[in-house]
Nucleic acid binder design. Structure first.
Length: 692
DNA sequence: GAGCACTGC
């Protein structure tokens, strides 16, 4: 084992960007607690916002937009005039768990029942009362959706956007719409809560084109412990290996405290934990009894006394809920948890008790290339903001240390922030929604960060080709309706087409099933082979769409139980989500008078209907087992999860749900079709719009 | 014959 030398430039003290306290996190939704006055007092002390409420209220009264730096939660604004007489305060979060857990806490603090004065609204769950709720926590996507119904958001007097620095797609869209709303309705007050680095740009955004007093910035003290940052003197060629070495050294030289390692994906996490457990028996079996004379091995004896037993744990989104919850078990005395995690641990999941962070400095990020219309998943260096956030994970309950597996010079060269999601995503759905809001001139829309012009163009072209917008650039009647569907544009288009093919019932299920990820759980090794056999029971020879339909129907038939899923290699969480999505989409189908006819086992009709949504995604089988795309003749590899992974389709032609570039260009969720069906749509397209 | 960062409606 090589010795590691880290250079320690000093402690990051209060006032730095590390000093940010986040109050909203917590993965586990708490049950509504009943507070004694003592614990209520304790809660207040934990919420700096309570201490600073007068300061915030003062700003909110004086300025249209208040940017709050370093603090979250809107606590006591409830008791101000802003929440009286039919006025409601909205408070948005980028994630569902955050929206619910903050609502639970604030309800307890205010001393009301959840869903009464304080409530929350997230997809599939509305725990609020139209008349009584004064402060409503919600996801930013939910509030954006509300603008489609009430474009001025007239029921709200104050809107607070929390975690704005994360720059989620809907945070950005919401900020853009809110700036527009404030011109028409200046009485609406905004509070934007962000980390230090972005505060000024938010303030500049809201003051540009208005008067300089429009926005103000206030800074609140955080409550976090200092985190010492150590850098490697040289970059490691293999950061997984290096992470293992660093963890082992921490284990030898430092006292108690859990270790959190940031890696990029499941494969790395598994390798890291494997190498780590390989080390454990190496040292553990050399217990003092088996060492002939400890005096002869001073380093080893020191090691044996100093080494704490480690508990290796993985944390990534692919795990079941049970497996994810294991990271919250408190380590027994004399042991420490070593958690190898993806970016999920950066903001979504907070683990207290972590004293050491080991940061690889890399992250997997999804980017959309508008030129090729391809989404790609690639490993890139993290941003400084991200690295800072990761380091902060070591100082939640006590002072900590963050080991960065790269030199400080590399940190200095990292981009300041991760590019906002809106700049690296397919804009088709967002643009349809903005059009539905009456924003027809996208050139005039004030983006916080503009998406690439090509992205906007590509989206407009696609919407035009799909008949969602007309020659005048405005929404067509069907475009208006599709904009309301909480699903991808082309899938929504397919739901409308089901009317012509008499298969609404089945297409609805397929629409829900393609919206979830990973319906099947196929683990590695021997259990994987058994799971594979289970999956074959659902396999339809026509392809994956029908296989998913079979799985869904079996799931509902056999009682929607978690144990049944376990037996049949299905992901219970994902399947339950599909049930919720289906019932939500069904409401829209009824509203738009789309019949819910069954195709009565006529798979041909079903496949024809699929082509109406997916005709742009056609491909042809070639002898080497890969496919060539109809559009662009690109080589496409079948994803190994497909039932057509090993089989040549009878007709040689397929449509697919999505394509993604990883190491290869892969297509997921395939169905065999007749080439004529594709041509029919192609002709229509060519005929209607000559410019492809 | 082989693989999946993370959200959201």
């Amino acid at each position: 084992m090589s010795t590691l030398t880290f250079w320690k430039p000093g402690t990051t003290g209060p006032g730095s960007t590390l000093d940010r306290a986040t109050e909203d996190e917590g993965n586990v939704v708490q049950s509504a607690p009943s507070h004694s006055s003592l614990s209520l007092q304790a809660q207040r002390e934990r919420l700096p916002i309570w201490k600073h409420r007068q300061k915030i209220l003062h700003c909110v009264e004086k300025h249209g937009v208040t940017i709050v730096v370093g603090q979250t939660g809107s606590g006591k604004t409830t008791q101000s005039g802003w929440a009286s007489e039919g006025n409601v305060i909205a408070c948005t979060q980028p994630r569902r768990v955050a929206a619910t857990s903050v609502a639970v806490r604030v309800a307890a603090e205010v001393g009301t029942l959840l869903g009464d004065e304080v409530g929350y609204t997230i997809r599939f769950e509305d725990v609020s009362d139209k008349k009584r709720t004064r402060i409503c926590y919600m996801t930013d996507g939910m509030l954006f959706r509300e603008t489609l119904i009430d474009p001025l958001l007239s029921r709200y007097s104050v809107i607070m956007i929390d975690e704005a620095h994360e720059r989620s797609l809907y945070t950005d869209l919401l900020l853009g719409v809110l700036k527009k709303i404030r011109r028409k309705r200046p009485s609406l007050r905004l509070i934007v809560s962000s980390a230090t680095l972005d505060a000024r740009s938010f303030s500049e955004y809201f003051t540009s084109g208005t008067h300089p007093d429009e926005a103000t910035i206030i800074s609140l003290e955080g409550r976090m412990y200092p985190v010492e940052v150590a850098y490697l003197q040289e970059s490691a060629p293999d950061y997984v290996r290096k992470a293992v070495e660093v963890v082992w050294n921490i284990n030898l030289h430092h006292g108690t405290g859990d270790i959190l390692i940031f890696l990029t994906g499941r494969e790395e996490i598994e390798r890291c934990l494997e190498e780590l457990t390989e080390l454990i028996p190496t040292f553990a079996h050399l217990s003092p009894l088996f060492v002939p004379d400890a005096q002869d091995y001073p380093p080893l004896s020191r090691l044996l006394r100093g080494a704490t037993q480690i508990i290796p744990l993985a944390l990534h989104a692919g795990l079941s809920t049970e497996e994810q919850l294991r990271v919250f078990n408190v380590a027994e005395r004399g042991t420490r948890k070593v958690i190898a995690a993806t970016n999920i641990a950066e903001a979504s999941v907070t683990i207290d008790g972590v004293k050491f962070v080991v940061d690889s400095g890399f992250v997997k990020i999804r980017t959309y290339n508008p030129t090729t219309s391809l989404a790609s998943l690639s490993t890139v260096p993290v941003s400084q903001a991200s690295a800072t956030q990761r380091a902060g994970r070591a100082g939640r309950t006590s002072p900590g240390i963050c080991y960065r597996l790269y030199p400080e010079s590399v940190f200095a060269s990292l981009p300041t922030n991760t590019p906002p999601e809106i700049t690296r995503t397919d804009m088709t759905t967002p643009i349809l929604q903005l059009k539905s809001l009456g924003i027809d001139d996208l050139m005039k829309f004030e983006w916080v960060s503009a998406p690439p012009a090509e992205s906007v163009l590509r989206a407009l072209e696609g919407l035009f080709a799909a008949g969602m917008i007309g020659d005048d650039g405005r929404l067509t009647p069907i475009g208006e309706q599709v904009a309301e569907f909480p699903i991808d544009v082309h899938i929504a288009r397919m739901l409308f087409a089901s009317k012509d093919f008499n298969c609404g019932e089945e297409i609805l299920t397929i629409a829900a099933m393609v919206s979830i990820q990973d319906a099947f759980i196929i683990p590695d090794g021997a259990p994987g082979a058994i799971a594979e056999l289970e999956r074959r029971k659902f396999t339809a020879e026509e392809g994956d769409h029908l296989t998913l339909l079979n799985a869904y129907n079996a799931f509902t038939k056999y009682g929607r139980s978690s144990s049944w899923c376990k037996m049949h290699a299905l992901n219970f969480r994902a399947m339950s989500r599909a049930v919720s999505i289906r019932s939500q989409l069904k409401k829209y189908m009824i509203r738009f008078n789309l019949p819910l006819h069954s195709c009565e086992g006529d798979a041909k009709r079903l496949r024809q209907c699929l082509v109406s949504g997916y005709w742009r995604n056609g491909a042809r089988w070639v002898a080497d087992g890969t496919y060539r795309s109809v559009k662009g003749n690109k080589t496409l590899f079948v994803h190994p999860t497909s039932v057509l992974f090993t089989r040549k389709p009878r007709t040689g032609w397929i449509i697919f749900h999505e394509v993604e570039e990883t190491k290869k260009t892969q297509i997921r969720i395939l169905t065999e079709i007749e080439p004529d069906w594709l041509l029919d749509h192609g002709h229509k397209y060519q005929h209607k719009h000559t410019a492809v």
